[in-house]
Simulated assay, not measured.
Amino acid sequence: MSTVSIEATINAKWSEGHSSYSPSSPEELAIIGIELLVRELGTDVARNFIRQAFERYPMPSTPCTDAHAPAGPTCGGTTRQVT
């Protein structure tokens, strides 16, 4: 995994005001993006937008034997029993 550093200044403006951001990591940039999406679209629409964006990236396969996984129909449609 590589380390990414970001050097950017983001100036966001809207009718009620403005904000300036200087993210230095992908995580900070994501938080800023989420904040701006929620401000523009509202929480539910922003959440759906982000969900659609993540559909581009397949979920990794994980075995259903993880002791910390919740019991229930989450692993291939089968219920894992907690012992």
Rank of each mutant, 00 (worst) to 15 (best):
E40Q: 10
G76E: 07
I50Y: 00
R51K: 14
A71K: 13
V45G: 00
E28H: 03
S15T: 12
E28A: 08
G17I: 09
R39F: 01
P58C: 06
R47W: 07
Q52I: 02
E16L: 08
E55Y: 12
V38F: 04
R51T: 05
R39S: 11
V45D: 08
T79C: 13
P60S: 11
V45N: 11
P60L: 11
I50C: 06
S24M: 04
S5L: 13
A12H: 09
V45A: 14
W14M: 05
T65P: 00
R56V: 01
P26D: 05
C75V: 06
M1N: 08
V82R: 14
G42V: 02
E35F: 09
S25K: 09
E16M: 09
A8C: 12
G72T: 10
S15H: 08
P23D: 11
H18E: 14
C64F: 04
A53G: 10
E16A: 15
P26R: 08
D44M: 14
T83R: 13
S15A: 15
A46V: 05
S22E: 11
R80Q: 15
E16R: 12
P23T: 07
T78S: 06
Q81V: 13
S20C: 07
E40R: 12
V82Y: 05
G17A: 06
Q52H: 11
C75L: 02
T3A: 11
W14H: 05
V4D: 03
E16N: 08
H18Q: 10
S15Q: 09
D66E: 09
Q52R: 13
E55P: 01
F54E: 13
E27M: 10
D44R: 04
R80E: 13
P60T: 05
V4E: 07
L41W: 03
R39K: 14
S22N: 13
I34V: 04
Y21Q: 08
P73W: 07
I31C: 08
L37R: 10
I6P: 06
G17H: 02
T9P: 00
K13I: 15
A67Q: 14
C75T: 08
R39D: 01
D44K: 01
E55S: 13
A12K: 03
P23Y: 03
Y21F: 15
D66I: 09
S2K: 09
R80G: 07
S20R: 13
E7L: 06
A8F: 03
R56I: 08
S19Y: 00
E55F: 05
N11L: 15
H68L: 15
A8I: 02
S2D: 12
G72Q: 12
T3M: 10
H68A: 14
D44W: 01
P26M: 07
C64I: 03
Q52K: 09
T9D: 11
Q52C: 03
P23R: 01
S5F: 03
G77I: 02
R80C: 11
Y21C: 04
S22Q: 12
G42Y: 05
G42Q: 04
T65F: 02
E35R: 07
L36A: 06
E7N: 09
Q81M: 07
M1P: 07
Q81W: 05
E55D: 12
T74C: 03
S22R: 10
T78C: 00
R51Q: 11
S24G: 15
F54P: 00
S25I: 05
W14V: 03
K13F: 15
E28T: 04
V38H: 02
